[in-house]
Amino acid sequence: MGPQGDSEVSEVSVVPGGLEADHRLETVIATLLRSGVLLATAVVFLGAAVYVLRHGGERPHYAEFHSEPTDLRSVSGILTDLSGLSGRGIIQFGLLVLIATPVLRVAASLLAFALKRDWLYTLLTLIVLILLLYSIFQGLPGLP
């Protein structure tokens, strides 16, 4: 083994998992976050255009809380509205993409830690992912 190979081995052994792998994960995460935000913004913008064209003149009533209709409150409902191409449905889908962006980031980290056989952090990341999925997919039934 040449001197180059030696230095590579010693660098990898300093940090478990390797600095290079960490750096690659950082690049993946950065790309993921940026594209998620850009996509969400584009979708919301599109929905806004449709929404303003149809409802621009109306005055909404937010002073009192009356809860959103059921179809705008769950993942499956939003997807149904999206296929109907309503302005509010498209916007809500864009917001869902935005909420999903950090969740995807956590999922990518989970995969990266598992590939590095860093089981402690695979477990810790899995806990975070489960909490997030619970929050987003919690059904309405059973909740007051």
Partner: peptide
């Protein structure tokens, strides 16, 4: 979102 506090027209 699930409790209906995210309004698309406002957000």
């Amino acid at each position: 979102l699930n409790r209906g506090y995210v309004d698309p027209g406002l957000a």
